[in-house]
């Protein structure tokens, strides 16, 4: 399946994904939905641990961001944004502490989908059950994208990881708010297109800086994409062409910008100093 075929489906995109994955047999469908609910609950427990912990990561670079933001004044009076950002960072700080998380699609980008989907769900006071089918769609979008491009930062740069997670999250939020397959695929496409070119340059090679804050930014990015698509806005470049463009940029990136910790902000004087200190 490609993204165009998914977009052409008349109805919710998650229905087509579920059909492709397990067919129409009831027991198999229920089994898969139960597994998705379990993953959702795992995501929720990573969020809960992350929001309440300020234990530093192994390097000491992160560990308190989610809790600090969660407890801070909401000066913008934008509770949805604050929630989405805090949830996303909570997951990635758990990840940086070697806590338990759900990869979505990777561990470094694991905060984006729960940040956006559970963040919006909680903001609107929806039940976890309402989030399950959107999560199925997120998984399906990730699967379709991964057939056409690398999703590892070491292969395609950060655009491959956070771009995929933002696309998955955008589609999920779009469906959660009533968007059918066409709108959800547009949301995913807008999210991916606006992530193109992002490099993977983690300081010292640790999945901490910029990874933790990046998940906060791209969880909000995903919600933005869903908002545009729900209003009927569309990408001029078709979805599958955007995926191909992302893949081709990934191939053009030099190794320094693909998760080696040798380029970008990792190669700044401070980045190098931190790396040296950690190597000792």
């Amino acid at each position: 399946m490609n993204l165009k075929q998914l977009a052409d489906y008349p109805g919710y995109g998650s229905e087509l994904i579920l059909h492709e994955e397990v067919g129409e047999e009831r027991a198999a469908r229920e089994d898969l939905l139960e597994k998705m609910l379990l993953r959702l609950q795992e995501m929720r427990s990573s969020i809960a641990r992350g929001l309440s912990s300020d234990e530093p990561s192994r390097t000491g670079m992160v560990g308190w961001n989610a809790k600090t933001l969660w407890g801070a004044d909401d000066k913008l009076r934008a509770p949805l944004m604050k929630r989405v950002q805090a949830y996303a960072m909570a997951v990635n700080e758990e990840n940086a502490r070697m806590g338990r998380i759900v990869a979505a699609p990777t561990a470094g980008s694991a905060g984006t989908v729960p940040g956006a989907l559970i963040g919006v769900g909680d903001h609107l006071e929806l039940t976890d059950e309402a989030l399950v089918m959107p999560l199925v769609l997120a998984a399906g979008i990730g699967q379709v994208i991964s057939q056409r491009m690398f999703i590892a930062g070491s292969s395609g740069g950060c655009q491959a990881e956070i771009g995929s997670s933002a696309a998955m999250a955008a589609a999920a939020v779009c469906e959660l708010l009533g968007g059918e397959a066409k709108a959800a695929v547009e949301a995913a496409t807008l999210a991916l297109m606006n992530t193109i070119g992002l490099v993977c340059d983690p300081v010292g090679g640790y999945v901490e800086v910029p990874c933790v804050s990046r998940n906060a930014f791209f969880a909000v990015h995903a919600v933005s994409a869903a908002q545009l698509a729900l209003a009927g806005l569309e990408s001029v470049i078709p979805p599958d062409e955007v995926v191909s463009a992302t893949a081709s940029i990934g191939r053009l990136l030099p190794p320094e910008l693909r998760e080696t910790g040798e380029g970008g902000i990792a190669a700044t004087p401070t980045g190098r100093r931190i790396a040296l200190k950690m190597a000792k």
Binding site: M98, A103, A104, P105
Partner: peptide, 16 residues
Amino acid sequence: MIGPIMIGPSSSHTAG
């Protein structure tokens, strides 16, 4: 592409 449930920090460098 939702999963695995895993100990961080990297799906490729840790779980894989």
